[in-house]
């Protein structure tokens, strides 16, 4: 029995190594010099820690990393709360407001779940492009705000609220909107947080849509900027790895601090960006 326990830990460590190894490479490479990194021999750790990569990453005027980080931050910080809130609003209305339109509106929303988002990037580009959304922030953000699946989750969630909710609201003289903002929403903090955090991760890491819609360097997200640097005219490897480290840090923090919500969100949705 004891041997089995030890064996489990050995297995755990053996599996953990390949999962951690890429993080080690990321960090090691970001601290090396271009010369060391371009060398022909393996090194475990740079002789002298060089922060040149980090300096170069921000000094590169062709691919403005600061701008890209700002764009990514705007996209994620706007998209996560707004898309979650929009879904909560619709989910609440569909669950608790009895009007004849509820059924058809629900159907109209749910049918869109059948259509996979990434596969239809060409039609979406065509429409957003016709509306003048190429090389704009709204073109980057707005098409990603409408998440039918989250509506479904919120609707199921609000359906399970007790019927006394509306009664309580009426006592306080609240209408539907009041019940939603004062009672339903504050009691949805867990679900809002779980979906919000997942949405943040999804938007921060998303690549195909920002690649397609932001052609002007001023509208690149950090993912597009890094991808561009992978194929640019002059590759500065330490800077590239340094920018990767910088782009990963916020999400790693979110993961470590909000893992409870992420795990809950994943269990509910099984999705990640």
């Amino acid at each position: 029995m004891k041997n089995a326990r030890v064996g489990t830990y050995v297995a755990g460590i053996v599996f953990a190594i390949p999962f951690l190894f890429p993080f080690y490479l990321l960090l090691r490479n970001s601290l090396m010099t271009q010369q060391e990194l371009g060398g022909l021999d393996w090194v475990w750790w740079p002789n002298t820690i060089s922060l040149q990569g980090f300096k170069d990453a921000f000094a590169n005027t062709s691919v403005p990393l600061g701008r890209a980080l700002l764009n990514s931050t705007i996209v994620a910080v706007v998209s996560a709360p707004v898309s979650t809130l929009l879904a909560a609003m619709a989910g609440y209305a569909l669950a608790r407001i009895k009007v004849a339109a509820a059924k058809p509106v629900f159907a109209l929303i749910i049918i869109t779940m059948m259509v996979p988002g990434a596969a239809t990037f060409v039609p979406t580009f065509v429409v957003v492009g016709s509306m003048g959304g190429v090389n704009t922030l709204w073109g980057l953000i707005v098409p990603g705000l409408f998440n039918a699946f989250a509506v479904l989750l919120f609707r199921g969630f609000y359906l399970r609220f007790p019927a006394e909710m509306e009664d309580a609201g009426r006592v306080d003289g609240l209408g539907h909107l009041g019940v939603f903002t004062r009672l339903a929403l504050p009691n949805s903090a867990g679900l809002l947080a779980a979906l919000g955090v997942l949405s943040f991760i999804e938007h921060w890491n998303s690549f195909l849509w920002p690649l397609v819609i932001g052609q002007d360097p001023a509208y690149w997200t950090v993912q597009v900027a890094m991808s561009t640097n992978l194929t640019s005219q002059s590759i500065n490897l330490p800077a590239l790895f340094a920018s990767a480290v910088i782009s990963v840090i916020p999400l790693a923090l979110v993961f470590l601090l909000a893992q409870r919500y992420i795990v809950r969100g994943v269990m509910m949705t099984g999705i990640k960006g």
Binding site: F19, F207, A244, S247, F255
Partner: peptide, 8 residues
Amino acid sequence: IPAAVSYV
């Protein structure tokens, strides 16, 4: 935690 990392 690798799930926090982007494909890029």
